[in-house]
Design a protein around this nucleic acid. Structure first.
Lengths: 339, 339
DNA sequence: CTGAAAGCGCTTACAG
DNA sequence: CTGAAAGCGCTTACAG
């Protein structure tokens, strides 16, 4: 703070333009003056002002990240920091900084996204959301501002997005149960507000169908994605007098609640009811029994999200892209038939 | 992008100064012109340029957050997003945005902190670190730039910091074991690079001492905080032929590895060895047995960190402050004597 | 190879 | 109540 390009110019007895060119590594500056200026910059402890440069260049090298906020547990989920790590790793390499903002409601989210877009502070936005009818998405579309959505948007027309192959991986997981002879497979935690849960439900349905099992709506329990307690969801089934032989939960945290409910009823996992989740929570491998899950590779999702955004910001030729990161089925004891 | 204060000025047939005053809600502007200008701003879809304003006002309303990066698992730990949520919640209320940066090494961390400080882009910094001899801390001290450290710094002279009462809460946890008659209590995961682990070790030692138990260095296993596998740490004890009757792990994730090692040896938790962790991971309550832990209230830590930073940025009278957020002992089955 | 000038889009004393 | 002017700290054609 304090020493500016003009101070250096005076001290070096050259013009500010020259200082600017030294900073920018402009090759037209003679080696002699370059050295002299660099030395003085160091002596006077000069550092270019990022804000002034941004204004002059009309480029801030900052991207905005809008995350769901305090009222939603999604923010607490381990995949969030993983995605952030992924974004950060490539952003850093490309000289971008990340401005982060959390919103508590869809309206707030739209507001934050808009502020980032119109304020001239960010050059692009990543939305950590995949909600149906997301107002932030329509707002950014309207503004024609570069952005990427993490999670398939309901209407993926004219938007960049990244996601897992939720349909396929859910299909595969369901098949893993069917192949072992399970027939009454429950699906817990669908929320019609999140495409991710819908896609997983569809994969499950298709797997049933392809293997001659009828889809039974009674085996599907609606929830609020990861905001709900698996314990409650499983008990809804029990209260209806339904005892499945297997249960797929939309998230590992839900799965643990499901297991708790099963045990409370005096049943065993996997012997009486086999269980699997999604998102491979850090502790899932340590549980007893270890939980079968799907690794979603959130770090890679973050990398892809940034790459798509960068392309949108820098490319001359506008296009809308998507990247699908494959999930990996991780089979552990909770879903392996023991008899 | 595009429409500036000058465009509005022309359209409204007033000077740019007047537009600026309307934006700033300056009371000296007549209601009539204010209304007219606001109307035109809306019609022309004008939004003030944040960067230009920052340059003119010499205030960006942005704080920097430096987090440990990809190579460290600390970033993956659930407390990270919790702290971020806490910071975000108050930052938002105070009109601050958060610029985030992750570093992989201590040197990189210092570099990021310095760039944030000297680049004129942030007005203060929160360091998510509590490492011994943190170069970022000394750098920011040298620059006399406002900052707050999450975690007690080794030398807390002239630094603002927030932390849990790690000594006391560890004391309390240890006493919980002693009170039940446990005598051979292991302590796993001390890292002399993190003050948090040292403080917890000291609390453990003091509790032993105050209750007539000798501290036995052989019962302490060093680790790399949450980067290490609890499984390996516990086996180090076993390999030395030591079988404790209780084990305190520096983190819940470590504790789960510890439990896995205990079981592999054919012993039971808590019957043969009682176990507890710290940081109350989201799944700890679902484990079998549910894990005794310490809730560190990371959200509150984040709030306090921002409040301290804000005070440093805005206060006329410089001072160095700290805030201690009490942890809460959460006793579950893993540490309750069954016989 | 270097400089003078204009400009990026705002704010803010100063003047009236 | 409003405006003209200078300034925030840079960059960048244009000129030489």
């Amino acid at each position: 703070m304090g020493v500016t390009i003009n101070d250096i110019a005076k001290a070096a007895k050259v013009s500010p333009s020259t200082i600017s060119r030294v900073i920018a590594n402009n090759p037209r500056i003679s080696a002699a003056t370059r050295e002299r200026v660099l030395k003085i910059m160091k002596e006077m402890n000069y550092h270019p002002n990022y804000i002034a440069r941004s204004l002059a260049k009309k480029s801030t090298k900052i991207i905005g990240l809008v995350v769901p906020g305090s009222t939603e547990n999604s923010f607490r989920h381990p995949f969030f920091p993983e995605i952030l790590r992924g974004i950060g790793s490539v952003a850093y390499k490309n000289g971008y900084n990340i401005l982060i903002s959390s919103a508590n409601t869809a309206a707030e989210e739209k507001q934050m996204a808009k502020e980032f877009a119109v304020g001239g502070i960010t050059e692009g936005i990543i939305l950590m959301t995949s909600m149906i009818k997301d107002p932030a998405v329509s707002e950014l579309k309207k503004l024609k501002f570069p952005f990427v959505v993490v999670g398939r948007p309901q209407d993926d027309n004219e938007v960049n997005w990244v996601d897992n192959n939720n349909f396929s991986i859910s299909y595969e997981l369901t098949k893993h149960f069917i192949a072992q002879g399970y027939k009454k497979i429950a699906f817990l935690g669908v929320s019609y507000e999140y495409t991710v849960t819908i896609d997983r439900l569809e994969g499950y349905k298709k797997a049933l169908e392809d293997n001659g099992l009828a889809f039974d709506a009674d085996l599907t329990v609606e929830g609020k994605f990861i905001d709900d307690k698996g314990y409650d969801l499983m008990n809804k089934l029990f209260e209806k007098g339904i005892i499945p032989d297997a249960a797929i939960a939309i998230d590992d945290l839900i799965a643990f609640g499901v297991i708790a409910a099963i045990r409370e009823k005096g049943l065993r996992v996997p012997d009486d009811i086999a269980v699997a989740g999604f998102n491979n929570a850090p502790l899932s491998e340590y549980m007893t029994p270890a939980l079968t899950s799907v690794e979603v590779n959130a770090f890679t999702l973050g990398i892809k999200a940034f790459e798509l955004l960068l392309a949108d910001i820098e490319s001359e030729h506008k296009s809308f892209n998507r990247a699908i990161v494959p999930g990996e089925l991780i089979i552990r004891k909770s879903s392996i038939k023991t008899f």
